[in-house]
């Protein structure tokens, strides 16, 4: 990615550009999600899917542009930690919702 002896001035411009791109993308994705809810055009289920999809994309934009997590890292410890935590979170959240919803269905 960066040249071995990176020029600080060029790097500064690149970093500011990364933040600016991230900010613009984040605003656009947020605006899209709020607009989809405020002016509904689709059935509720489609809108919900759209909102969750935009949120996922925005999280990736934030990780990439603000937290500078990338796949091309010389040290990938951060990325491994994030992916493992994501796995744990998916297991626990999906497990909780499935089990409690199932219990709820049986109690009715």
């Amino acid at each position: 990615m960066t040249a071995p002896q990176a020029d600080p001035r060029r790097e500064k411009r690149r970093e500011i550009r990364t933040y600016a791109i991230g900010y613009a993308l984040a605003l656009a994705l947020t605006g899209g999600a709020f607009a989809a809810v405020h002016w509904p055009r689709f059935p509720a289920r489609t809108t919900l899917g759209l909102v969750f999809g935009l949120a996922l994309v925005q999280m990736i934009v934030h990780l990439r542009c603000f937290l500078h997590v990338s796949l091309r890292r010389s040290s990938r410890d951060d990325l491994l930690l994030i992916l493992f935590s994501t796995l744990i979170i998916i297991l626990m959240v999906a497990g909780t919702i499935v089990i409690i919803a199932n219990l709820h269905g049986r109690m009715m």
Binding site: M1, P8, L67, H68, S70, R73
Partner: peptide, 16 residues
């Protein structure tokens, strides 16, 4: 390790 490398999340200070 080169000066401009990325070693951790967030801004890396290697260049300066």
């Amino acid at each position: 390790m080169s000066a401009g490398d990325m070693r951790h999340a967030g801004i890396n200070l290697g260049t300066t």
